[in-house]
Amino acid sequence: MSARKAVVVEVGKGWAIVLEPDGEYKKVMTSAYLEVGDSYQLKSGTKFKYLTAAALFLTILLGSIDYYTVQAYAEVSSLVELGVNRWGRVISVQAKDKEGQIVLDTVKIRNDRLETAVEKVSQAIKEESPQMKGAIQTDSRSVKSKNKSNRNLEEKMLKEIDKGLERANKSNNIKNKVIKNNRNKAINQSLPQFRNPSNNEEMAESDAAINEEPEGQKQEKKPDHKQERVNQDDQLEKHKDIPGKKSKTDAVPPKAKQEKDANSKKNNSNDR
């Protein structure tokens, strides 16, 4: 007799008064067919269930609305404007001109953290439009929050952009070196198609830069002498950042480019 039912004592249209097993009289709304004297199974917790469902629905709805609300616009370069929500995720992406559109078509940065988004964009810019070399500068970045009270977010975002740029620069430098390395190899093997006269000057320049770097610890991975040097340079750059050192343009031959991509991925994972 543990689960006893209530007994109906009065009925009307759409309602009934029941006497519960513990002696409480209660009016219940029900459309079921009942008569006086019937037993009635109380549906406990239906109200509660509906309330929970409604609350859950509302939370999800409001949460997603909030997520997709742009709290601040970050301008990384003169090309693109990124809308950032309150959690620092990129929600909207807007190109300022054609050039920017091309860049944005190549990267997927929606729902990324601003840091990674900036990194991806700046890399893309370098890859897609070598002539836009100077487009990304640390001083061209800006964050405009929608309501002025949101200083915290602005500062945070600025920091993230800096980080992203830094990382982009790092990986670009590494890339450049790898490319150079490949190119040098190619030259060593005297493959004529890799000799690109337009880039000779620059190559020389960067080679000089590498030569100027002080020597660090030795790492022995590959027997190739040049490779070793490059590795040393990488190590150094991880520890100290050289702000003046900007990435070099990369006019890369197709084969070398593929290799470069693979290498840069490797390097990125090493970074993290």
Partner: peptide, 27 residues
Amino acid sequence: DDLARKQEIEKLNKLLLEFNIGFKDLA
């Protein structure tokens, strides 16, 4: 059983009416 209960309830209802009490009040 329902009918038996119904008879009880109807009788109780009559008694309660003497006290001017309806089941609605009780609820």
